[in-house]
Design a protein around this nucleic acid. Structure first.
Lengths: 125, 125
DNA sequence: TTGCATTAGATGCGAGTGCATGTAGTCTGC
DNA sequence: GCAGACTACATGCACTCGCATCTAATGCAA
């Protein structure tokens, strides 16, 4: 029982380390993106609309402060835009730019390739 | 096909984030250990003998430099000892101390509890 | 309206990580 | 035996992360 949890944990640990390391290297070298940047970009593409920062925070596995900085980096790179929310002026809307969409499109096959290599030996645990 | 990999990746990402966050907090608050420190200690206990740093490097999901520093921290805390290897004086042997063993013993139930909470849903069909 | 608690997001800070490199010990071919 | 390649580990550095805290906007009650 406990042992099964530990085994699953080891699996998660191993796959996460391997995939994360490859993703960071491949996405970084080929597309100038970190894994966190890609993840945020990916969510933006899937939403296909402006999204509240808070909403992203629930979906992405980052702290609020880390997300704030990732979005700041993406904005500086011209891949997303930040705009104030009219109904609640504390809030921030994030939208993906055409360049952001293009960069994501280029990076997607790279990500898929990495995941395929890491997970090809085993599907769901 | 690709979609299955992506799904598995999301699973790994979610579980890793949740478990790692809990482990860091619980192990840190209750036992003064980080997740990496505990992982190294855990390997040491399982080996139950002096181990080459290089050997640990293959087992633990850390870079060589990170491992070097984790072991340095553990040594400073008195939980492991470092000694030179006689047959290859570049090498370093790491051994667990009684305090290290005790600390691991105290921390183990905490780790198991966290894993149980994070993964308990995974085994339910 | 005013005062206070709450919320969204930004930011200072310390800690841990990986990469590149440094240092010291070992092996190999001549 | 020795020069040069190689290996094991340590360390400088830049970067990202989470936590705590700050600021500004909102909501709610008196």
């Amino acid at each position: 029982m406990d042992e099964a949890f530990v085994e699953t944990w080891h699996y998660v640990l191993a796959k996460h380390a391997k995939a994360m390391c490859s993703l960071e290297r491949e996405l970084g070298d080929k597309h100038g993106l970190g894994a966190s940047e890609f993840e945020v970009l990916d969510r933006m593409v899937n939403h296909d609309r402006k999204v509240r920062l808070q909403e992203l925070c629930d979906e992405v596995h980052l702290s609020q402060s880390a997300l704030s900085r990732v979005v700041a980096r993406l904005e500086k790179a011209g891949l997303v835009t930040r705009g104030v929310c009219d109904s609640d002026r504390r809030g921030v809307f994030v939208g993906i730019t055409p360049e952001g969409r293009a960069r994501h499109g280029q990076a997607l096959p790279t990500q898929r390739a990495v995941l395929a290599e890491v997970f090809s030996d085993a599907l769901v645990p």
